[in-house]
Design a protein around this nucleic acid. Structure first.
Length: 567
RNA sequence: CGGGGCGUGGCUCAGCCUGGCUAGAGCGCCUGGUUCGGGACCAGGAGGUCGGUGGUUCGAAUCCACUCGCCCCGACCA
């Protein structure tokens, strides 16, 4: 391609609306333009790059035996009503009515469509297992689109769906996806972590997320540098740091003491002279319309996801001040578990074995000392605390780190969540009707590109790996007015094309500085500069990533590029 | 949905508080010339309903009300 003929609208300045690096660079490098919040046009460079990512995805999916299909983005409400997700998805589903007033939506994912299709066609165990995948645009009415391509309302996803006769089959295809995804992300040049994840609205038993570390992310991952354990913070477990002070020994009885105005754990620690680890934090929540008291160590945070699970209501909420006063006879800040009746108590496991701690007295401006779980009150024990950096790994004892991540893929063992209610049945070898077990496996294509840019960029622009860069090499004559340079550059460019290299010739009538800056910005991995040294028959081969330059004979340049590409 | 910020040529922004004559700068763009190894220089030029609507006023980019859009934080989140 000749740069002079292409539309690559690079920007010298950072557009005001872009905050995160990948967003800024995608705009500056002329890859994308925004149409509306969370809706983007992919210009030529983005399209080339995304197509390369899609090709990698297709090759690897095909290699694992999956079959590519295409599903309608436009769905009638009925299929979503059948699975129950018409209601569950709430405002995140783009909904509208067609001209006859029928409820419709834009699919945000395709479990429903896939299941409806399968139930009409799959009849026998002989047809299983099946893995179908699609690479399509999906829609989600995000309450807050942000960060360029990281959180958008219209996006390209690879989704695959598996049907198996039994759990063992599902386990196998799940594992196959896991390995295939690793290959895909490796080829895209992504450093990623696969983590244990929470299934959320998808349902199902097991799930993994593929995460890329980035400050632009919205998920937190706990990771062990020692043994490789990693999990979404929503699910992560750890051994908490030891209490900062030893508990008073002995079988002491709770004893009230005045704590005027001391409400927060920090204030109480300062007031009593006992560290936060000696306090019991009492949280009142409302789950399914009923109150519950949750206790964690003073310095610990409640994990809302874990709490939602044990309360059996992911939609639980903190109690309002008036509710707290009604149930406990005191305000938040003086609450505790002793003598509480008619409200179930859940205690975090970090409180087990502790003695004579401080807790609220359920009386304003008063607390109790010498409160012991199991003696002075009873509670159901669960892991409800959120892991923090520095906690010890439960497997190897090393200190866990907590990192911010972008989720680029998520795989789920769905189980029978869709096949059962939607009536997907096949006959087994005994002629009995059975329900196939399903899995679903998604990859965000745009997030791969954004993730790579987040990971690999510098002040001058993107640093893309050859596998997904829009071009592999750009040939740059330093001075267009110099016919010898121009001719040589053209010859090198054409020979590169002949060798199957994705080459770009920067034939623009621009000063060399402009061409170099633009080449750096759009992230082309290699550059061949045809300049003054041509007099000695030499051109320069520059690697974008390392900025190292090497002189090579101009006739050797195309081969040298090919070698650097590892081909 | 709650909180905050911003809408002025293609991009980045000034002007607004304290209303006043043809609305500015830099970058980009066009023409000509000189240049040519890290976003050149000179000369000339094109390009703006000041987001929209309504109001106040002799007069509104500027003040007021409403509204639309975008960004950020939170809520939310395959």
């Amino acid at each position: 391609m000749l740069w002079s003929k292409l539309f690559i609208p690079t920007l010298r300045e950072v557009p005001a609306e872009a905050e995160v690096a990948s967003h800024q660079l995608l705009l500056r490098a002329g890859y994308i333009r925004q149409l509306s919040a969370g809706i983007y046009t992919f210009l030529y460079l983005a399209q080339r790059s995304l197509k390369k990512i899609q090709t990698i995805v297709r090759q690897e999916m095909d290699a694992m035996g999956a079959q590519e299909i295409s599903c309608p983005a436009l769905n009638p409400a009925e299929v979503w009503q059948e699975s129950g997700r018409w209601d569950v998805m709430g405002d995140n589903l783009f909904r509208f009515k067609d001209r006859f007033g029928r409820d419709m939506c834009l699919a945000m994912t395709h479990e429903e469509v896939i299941t409806v299709t399968a139930r009409g066609e799959l009849r026998s165990y002989k047809q299983l297992p099946q893995v179908w995948y699609q690479l399509q645009t999906k829609f989600r009415d995000e309450p807050r689109p942000k960060s360029g391509l990281l959180r958008v309302r219209e996006f390209m996803m690879k989704d695959s769906y598996s049907f198996d006769m039994d759990q063992a089959g599902l386990d196998a295809v799940y594992d196959k996806h896991y390995k295939t995804y690793c290959r895909i992300f490796d080829r895209c040049g992504l450093e990623y972590t696969a983590v244990d994840a929470h299934s959320g609205a998808m349902g199902g038993s097991q799930s993994h997320e593929f995460m890329v570390a980035s400050d632009a992310g919205e998920d937190f991952v706990a990771r062990c540098p020692g043994c490789g354990y990693s999990a979404n913070l929503e699910k992560a477990i750890s051994i908490p740091a030891a209490p900062a002070a030893d508990d008073p020994a002995g079988d002491l009885t709770p004893e009230e003491f005045p704590t005027p105005g001391q409400k927060t754990i920090a204030e109480l620690a300062a007031f009593t002279g006992l560290p936060e680890t000696s306090q019991m934090k009492s949280l009142v929540v409302v789950a399914d319309g009923k109150p519950a008291l949750i206790l964690v160590r003073g310095d610990h945070q409640l994990s809302e996801t874990k709490a939602g699970a044990i309360l059996n209501d992911p939609e639980f909420r903190p109690a309002r001040p008036d509710e707290i006063r009604q149930w406990f006879g005191a305000d938040a800040g003086s609450l505790g578990p002793v003598a509480v009746k008619d409200v179930p108590i859940f205690a975090d496991r970090a409180l087990v074995g502790r003695r004579n701690m401080i807790a609220g007295a359920n009386k304003n401006d008063a607390h109790l000392r010498h409160v012991t779980l199991g003696e002075d009150f009873q509670a159901e024990l669960h892991d409800v605390r959120q892991v923090v950096a520095g906690d010890a790994c439960t497997r190897c004892g090393a200190k866990l780190e907590v990192i911010k991540c972008v989720e680029i893929a998520h795989i789920f063992k769905l189980g029978y969540k869709y096949s059962e209610p939607m009536g997907l049945r096949v006959l087994n070898a005994e002629g009995k009707e059975v329900t196939p077990i399903m899995g679903s496996y998604g990859i965000g294509i745009g997030r791969i590109l954004s993730g790579v840019i987040e990971l690999h960029h510098d002040k001058d622009g993107m640093i893309l790996p050859p596998s997904i860069a829009p071009f592999e090499v750009v040939v740059t004559p330093a001075n267009n007015a110099d016919a010898a340079q121009m001719d040589t550059a053209r010859a090198i460019y054409e020979e590169c094309l002949g060798l199957g290299i994705d080459a770009l010739l920067d034939d623009r009538d621009e000063r060399p500085g402009v061409k170099f800056k633009d080449a750096d910005l759009i992230g082309v991995p290699f550059r061949v500069v045809v300049g003054k040294k041509l007099a000695q028959g030499l051109v320069e081969l520059v690697e974008r990533k390392t900025r190292t330059a090497a002189d090579v004979a101009s006739a050797e340049a195309p081969r040298a590029v090919l070698a650097r590409l590892g081909r």
